[in-house]
């Protein structure tokens, strides 16, 4: 069993492997886990070793003269041994405790003001929303709203403020940090940091209903120029198309009620009062995935299939009437302009 776990540590093709941290917080956790893991392995080897030894050594081999059964010595116990195997594990655990407790407080420490990039995260059935308040230090002069893909600068502390609009979710990007529950009615905070630019996989880790499995997320860490470019792109309002198929789609977006729920800044800024929480689509095509990050946005068929039937993801709150293939082409053409 232990050797299997060690093997798991070596597997490199698991994008959510918690034993391969790629940021300082996750590494702090891993550094704490490693010695404790090996202590456990040592205890495992000793205990199982003694059990196996006892089985082999003292197994009754059915001595030839069955009747004259020889009884083993009738040991009732040994107080010194008892005290020993009470105290020794307690000491080992005390060492583990001493290692553990400071880390608990370290990871709950709030960053100094202005040092961390602030992002407000919203959990909703079954997708993630991200709201970047204005932070000139990070180039954000106007708030940014996006969904499912969390963009951050690499090597930068990120301070998340977690809120839920419905049930309990849990935000988790294993290579960057552990998880923190997102509880309705409460505001939780959590820290993230990635060492290097890259894409980090994660997902909701608290059962949240029908499509819990489909509430995934990505963290995209940029280098400095990549971050500046992303922020700049996100702060440009898309231009509403005036002609062609995309313009037809632009009109359909309102006629079909899409704009009742989805914000497209500059064009559809207000959603209906009774709208369920819905992703902001202003820069939809700057993302690689949609609908809780389970579909590939670079594959045209996925989005078309979604427009045909949003219920292909169980529990989706999206309602869209029957669309003709022409409608779908037009809507797709419009959505494609939302870069």
């Amino acid at each position: 069993m232990a050797s299997l776990v060690v093997l798991a540590g070596c597997a490199s093709d698991a994008p959510q492997d918690m034993l391969e941290p790629e940021g300082p917080y996750a590494r702090t956790l891993d550094n704490l886990f490693n010695p404790i893991f090996w202590v456990a392995v040592a205890v495992f080897v000793v205990v199982e070793g003694v059990i196996v030894y006892s089985i082999v050594k003292w197994r009754d081999r059915g001595d030839a003269d069955g009747d004259a059964e020889e009884m083993p010595a009738q040991l009732h116990g040994n107080t010194r041994l008892e005290i020993g195997w009470t105290i020794v594990p307690a000491l080992v655990l005390a060492v583990i405790a001493v290692l553990t407790v400071p880390v608990i407080f370290e990871l709950n420490a709030e960053p100094a003001a202005g040092e961390a990039l602030e992002v407000d995260v919203t959990g909703a059935q079954f997708w993630w929303g991200y709201d970047y308040p204005t932070q000139p230090d990070f180039g954000i002069t106007e708030g940014i709203v996006t969904a499912n893909e969390l963009h951050i600068p690499a090597g930068q502390q990120v301070h998340l403020t977690l809120e839920s609009v419905d049930v309990i979710h849990s935000f988790w990007a294993p290579k960057l940090n552990g998880k923190r529950d997102v509880v309705p009615g409460r505001t939780h905070h959590w820290l993230l940091e990635a060492d290097e630019p890259g894409v980090y996989s994660g997902q909701c880790a608290e059962f949240c209903g029908l499509s819990h499995a489909n509430m995934r997320l990505k963290v995209v860490a940029h280098d400095a120029t990549g971050w500046e470019a992303w922020v700049e792109d996100m702060q440009q309002e898309p231009v509403a198309p005036v002609s062609g198929l995309a313009a037809e789609g632009f009109a359909l977006f309102q006629q079909r009620g899409c704009s009742g729920c989805h914000v497209v800044e500059g064009a559809y800024n207000e959603v209906a009062d009774d709208s369920p929480p819905s992703p902001n689509l202003t820069h939809l095509f700057s993302r690689d995935c949609f609908a809780g990050c389970i579909y590939d946005l670079n594959d045209r068929n996925e989005l078309e299939a979604w427009l045909r039937d949003p219920q292909r993801k169980a529990g989706s709150k999206m309602v869209i009437g029957e669309l003709t293939e022409a409608d779908i082409d037009a809507l797709y053409a419009y959505l494609e302009t939302l870069e």
């Binding site: 918690m18 996750a26 702090t28 956790l29 891993d30 704490l32 886990f33 404790i36 893991f37 456990a40 655990l93 583990i96 290692l99 553990t100 880390v103 608990i104 990871l107 849990s170 294993p174 940090n177 552990g178 998880k179 923190r180 880790a205 608290e206 059962f207």
Partner: peptide, 14 residues
């Protein structure tokens, strides 16, 4: 015992 190491349990839990 590994779960009791609370910081790392935020990775293990669920």
């Amino acid at each position: 015992v590994m779960h009791s190491v609370a910081p790392h349990d935020t990775q293990q839990t669920d």
